[in-house]
Each structure stands twice: as C-alpha cells, then as structure tokens.
Amino acid sequence: MEDLLTQSTLVQLRVNGKLHELEVMPFTSLLDLLREELHLTGTHMGCMTGHCGACTVMVNGRIAKSCIVLASTLERAEITTIEGLRTADGKLHPVQQAFWDEAGFQCGYCAPGMLMSAVELLKENPNPDDAAIESGIAGTLCRCTGYRSIVRAVKAAAVRMNSPEA
C-alpha cells in the first residue's frame, strides 16, 4: 500500500478556459494555488476558515470557498475565478456590470464571493426575491455591512439578464 503514497500530486485544472497541469503538494489549498502559482489574485484571502467567502470560485460549475478546498483532491476540474467572469469580448459579466452601475460594493474585498454567489443564484433562479437573494449570498460576509446595495445590485443583475438585449 506504500506505493499509493506520494509527496505531490498531478492535477489537471482548466482555469478560466486555460488548461494547467500542476504538481501540487498535499497541503496546498486551491486558493494558494490560484494566487501563488497562477497569480490570479482577484480571488481574495480572508479568514482561511470558510467563514467569509472572499475566496469564492466556481469548481465544476458550482461555487466553493477555495481556502477550504484541498487542491490535490481536484484531480481534474474546471475552475472559474472572478477574472474568468468577463465575456470573451472583454466586457464585464452582466452581474459585474450591475454591481458597477448600482455601486453594489463599498471596499470590494468580498467581490469574488458576492459575484460568484449571484451568478450561481441567478442561473438557478432568474427572478429571486429579497429572501432568495439573502440566502443566496449568505455564504459571504461583507465587512462593510453594505448588504442593501448588494441585494439591490443582484436584483438589477436579474433584470439585466432577463432583458432580451442581454
């Protein structure tokens, strides 16, 4: 059984559409991998306990707190970070644009969490009410406590994404 034990592991990650083959140490979090190896610093480090959500990314289409995802357990995975939200022609994602237009953020440290949560929520529920939005962003803390403007921005994003031009 000793032959199963390794000091590092090969992972194949498609990050924002680009394939990376990386040799990772067993204790490396996905957050560290993204920031330190791939230099994608839009994903923020907050608490390292899974409380704050500033490190949120999408793993295989579902949002996750990258600080509490062990990179070596992602043998093959598709990752989208906040950098990967913008459209192919370089425009902001409709959710990002709505946060910009509505001044959704104050300091913006929680942006990865709020934006990713809103993207996932709106994919499942294109017309969320206040309660659905609040529960949708519950995994991310805004230390500025600017939740009202965040909820307003998510609503604006829903309208934007439901309009025929979007």
Binding site: G50, H51, G53, T56, V59, R62, I63, A64, K65, I68, V69, G113, S117, E120, L121, G136, I137, A138, G139, T140
Partner: peptide, 10 residues
C-alpha cells in the same frame, strides 16, 4: 446548514 451555497456544494 450554515456556510452558504459554497458549503452546501462541497
């Protein structure tokens, strides 16, 4: 269960 969608997903 607390922790938000991120935790429910993993």
């Amino acid at each position: 269960i607390g922790g938000g969608r991120q935790v429910h997903n993993r």
